[in-house]
């Protein structure tokens, strides 16, 4: 039942984020006021149907324009995007990854293809943090042209969501753009095909190894208002929580914290646990004195 609700939520948010269906008549992309708002998941704002802005694209743009803006006396630091992500993260942590992100939904579809499944090499979990620090913040900030503008490195060289949601539809809709698709586009297609193929065999590989948005939300998993609680004494070591976890969080044996930054808060573990050992807390109240003493 919970899984059904989650799936419905993923569809609703995918449709809400991409609800502009006049693009074949009105122009290549939506240009209305809603694009001042950030979407909660990774959803390219160059997608013809996108009505809101991708927070990672937005953050990179602020980083890329920071030097130029400061030289021009304009103090645009990206507080708006950071504040938005911080508010969402402080409330629910990485829940948008599991319940709202369109690209997460695509990877889950692909994982349903009945082929052998393999687990992910754990050190790759550091990938999202590396992407965030290097491709979203450092390179756009430091590598600039003569005028002082940086580049959106993650969008340009990595983001498969942009290729899938924007690059491919725009090339399909506008034949005059096709001669412009050169080596860079071939590279991005190779990344997209690699991620999509990987998604058939590994659960949510992009979210677990590359997504900088997941890295930001994930940092707040331990501190968010919403938290998961694991009752160790109730655990019967059946491993059902680990088997069903889409991101391989292994808290039943103490290897990971239940609020690890890898957890996308799909809440499957809380429903599969036969002993009721996993619960969801949404409260400002800390652990009771009795629980602490125990």
């Amino acid at each position: 039942m919970m899984e059904k609700k989650r799936r419905v939520s993923q569809y609703i948010f995918t449709l809400l984020g991409n609800s502009y269906w006049f693009f074949p008549w009105d122009g290549p992309i939506y240009q209305g006021g809603l694009k001042k708002l950030c979407f909660v998941g990774l959803n390219c704002y160059s997608c013809p149907a996108a009505v809101a802005s991708c927070p990672i694209g937005a953050l990179q743009n602020f980083m890329a324009g920071l030097r130029f803006n400061l030289q021009a006396g304009s103090f645009l630091f990206g507080f708006y995007v950071l504040g938005f992500l911080g508010m969402v993260g402080a409330l629910v942590g990485r829940l948008p990854c599991g319940w709202m992100c369109p690209f997460g939904l695509i990877q889950e579809w692909l994982y349903k293809i009945p082929l052998p499944k393999i687990s992910l090499w754990r050190p790759l979990r550091w990938g999202p943090h590396l992407m965030l620090i290097l491709f979203v913040i450092t390179l756009p900030l430091l590598v600039t042209d003569q005028v002082g503008f940086g580049y959106t490195w993650f969008c340009k060289y990595v983001c498969p969501a942009g290729t899938f949601e924007a690059g491919l539809p725009l090339l399909a809709l506008q034949p005059e753009l096709r001669p412009l698709a050169g080596m860079l586009f071939n590279w991005k297609m190779a990344v997209l095909v690699a991620i999509m193929t990987w998604s058939v065999f590994v659960s949510r590989p992009f979210c677990r190894t590359m997504c900088p948005l997941g890295a930001i939300y994930g940092l707040m998993n331990r501190f968010s208002l919403m938290r998961l609680h694991f009752e160790e004494d109730a655990c019967v070591q059946c491993k059902a929580c680990y088997t069903i976890c889409p991101t391989g969080v292994s808290f039943y044996n103490g290897r990971d914290d239940i609020n690890s930054s890898a957890c996308i808060r799909c809440l499957r573990c809380s429903h599969i646990c036969p002993a009721g050992g996993v619960s969801v807390e949404f409260s400002l109240k800390g652990p009771s004195k009795k629980a602490v003493a125990e």
Binding site: P28, I29, Y30, Q31, G33, K35, K36, C38, C44, Y45, S46, S53, G57, A58, N61, F62, Y80, V81, Y151, T152, C155, K156, G162, T163, A166, G167, L170, L177, L180, A181, L184, F185, W187, K188, M189
Partner: peptide
């Protein structure tokens, strides 16, 4: 943000 989001950046999507 709106100015960036509505001006289609071709190189940003490859």
């Amino acid at each position: 943000l709106w100015q960036k989001a509505v001006a289609l950046c071709m190189s940003c999507i490859g």
